[in-house]
């Protein structure tokens, strides 16, 4: 069993092969057509196979070429910011921007260890007002401002 010399290549390669396999499965029930009349599955299939081949090369390189070790992950930022974005997505329609945006920003702001709660709260409030002014009123985008569930309040 040869030893892994470039773990980054190996993992990239495996991920690419997985992506290719997934794509092949996803278009498996579509027709490929002929060269004269290409079907919907032709291009995705060819490209997926090519990606798979690239993946295999990366896996091979992972054993042959000396490479860098796996990167260090800092998960706090992506996890907390991602959570804030999900909260925004879940509340924008049901509670409106005036609730969703400050809520999301209070979460997102915690994505760094340097967060200062008071300052963040003020910033969130100011930013909400600014965005409402800009997007809702100046640019006339249809963003729900405030919805109180169970009542008729919605504007």
């Amino acid at each position: 069993m040869p030893s892994v010399r470039a773990p980054r290549s190996l993992i990239s390669g495996l991920a690419l092969i997985a992506l290719a396999a997934f794509a092949l499965w996803a278009v498996s029930d579509l027709s490929q057509g002929t060269m004269r009349a290409m079907g919907p599955a032709m291009l995705p299939r060819v490209v997926a196979v090519a990606i798979g081949v690239c993946g295999l090369i990366f896996v091979g390189l992972g054993f042959l070429q000396k490479g860098e070790p796996l990167p260090a992950w800092e998960l706090r930022g992506p996890l907390i910011v991602g959570l804030g974005m999900v909260v925004f997505a879940l509340t924008i329609r049901s509670l409106g921007f005036a609730v969703a945006a400050p809520l999301a920003m209070l979460i997102i702001g915690r994505g760094t260890t340097e967060a200062q709660p008071r300052e963040l709260a003020i910033f969130a409030a100011a930013m909400t007002a600014f965005c409402l002014g800009l997007f809702r009123y100046l640019l006339d985008q249809p963003i729900p401002v405030l919805i109180v569930p169970g009542t008729d309040i919605a504007f």
């Binding site: 994505g111 760094t112 930013m127 965005c131």
Partner: peptide, 14 residues
Amino acid sequence: YRLLFVGIVIFCCI
């Protein structure tokens, strides 16, 4: 940056 990035993210979301 602790404030800037919050603004950037919310801007993208909107």
